[in-house]
């Protein structure tokens, strides 16, 4: 029996396809999940329908107030201090009113606000553009509203950085490890070539703890469930006039700001 080239190629193609699908069938049959094992959410875990944060800027008075909050976040999450703006990685930081709320500045706002630092972090938008553009679902929105990063899956295309209207995302332009002064052994670092940002301390919420920055803020940062009318954030929001960054873009940030100088009006 002899076959010509055309038949051989047909046969080869057919066997390849069968081989490929066949092996996946075998994989399915040998499904490796251990029998009777299951996964649960920790009983202590804090849960919400939509996590949100209110930043009461009047509670932040000294440089130390900002520093302790930033330090708390960056040290437990192994955020590197690279020391140059080009390669900078940051999860929570400060900037001026003008830069925090572009378009909402005016010449005659009180001096105490004009020169006051404002805390910035990921807004965990209800309608996040970064999630919309990610080609691998490496960034995604959890059921509790947290806009999460899965660094295992990130390919480093930085589409999310172009899409984020709030400059909340940092890219690891180089290996961050040499720039972490003291590593927290309980949390991973990142590797070069992936994007990172604030996660509302998802790892602490899972253990029943509030975000690290909230814990260190002396009441300046209020954290809770936006969909629960009895939550602390909702109480604060109904008692104070608050603003959000770039509301006109329609991303629905979950971070609210109470604007106040904290008694430094004469400064």
């Amino acid at each position: 029996m002899s076959i010509n080239r055309r038949e051989f190629l047909k046969l080869a193609g057919f066997s390849t396809v069968m081989g490929l699908t066949g092996s996946s069938v075998v994989d399915e049959l040998l499904k490796t999940k251990a029998e009777a094992s299951q996964v649960l959410v920790d009983e202590k875990a804090l849960s919400a329908k939509r996590w949100a944060m209110v930043i009461d800027t009047s509670k932040f008075k000294t440089e130390e107030d900002y520093k302790s909050v930033i330090q708390a976040c960056h040290s437990i999450h192994n955020v590197p201090d690279i020391g140059n703006p080009k390669d900078e990685v940051k999860w929570i930081w400060t900037d001026t009113y003008e830069h925090t709320f572009p378009g909402q500045e005016n010449e005659y706002i009180p001096e105490g606000i004009k020169h006051k630092p404002f805390l910035l972090l990921c807004n965990h938008c209800y309608n996040p553009p970064c999630v919309r553009v990610c080609p691998t679902k490496a960034t995604f929105k959890r059921k509790d509203g947290i806009v999460m990063m899965d660094q295992h899956r990130c390919i480093g295309c930085r589409f999310c950085m172009a899409a984020c209207p709030f400059g909340a995302r940092s890219f690891n332009w180089r290996d961050p490890r040499p720039f972490i002064k003291e590593t927290n052994p309980e949390y991973p670092t990142r590797t070069k070539g992936v994007v990172e940002k604030c996660t509302f301390c998802f790892e602490r919420l899972a253990r029943g703890l509030k975000p690290a920055c909230v814990e260190k803020s002396n009441g300046g940062l209020i954290f809770g469930d936006l969909s629960d009318p009895k939550s602390e954030v909702r109480k604060v929001l109904s008692a104070h006039y608050t603003i959000r960054r770039k509301p006109e873009i329609g991303t629905q940030p979950s971070v609210y700001y109470i604007i106040g100088t904290g008694g430094n009006e004469n400064a």
Binding site: Q38, V41, D144, M148
Partner: peptide, 9 residues
């Protein structure tokens, strides 16, 4: 990371 479930039984 993705499902937020951290207890393995």
């Amino acid at each position: 990371v993705r499902d937020g479930k951290r207890v393995y039984v």
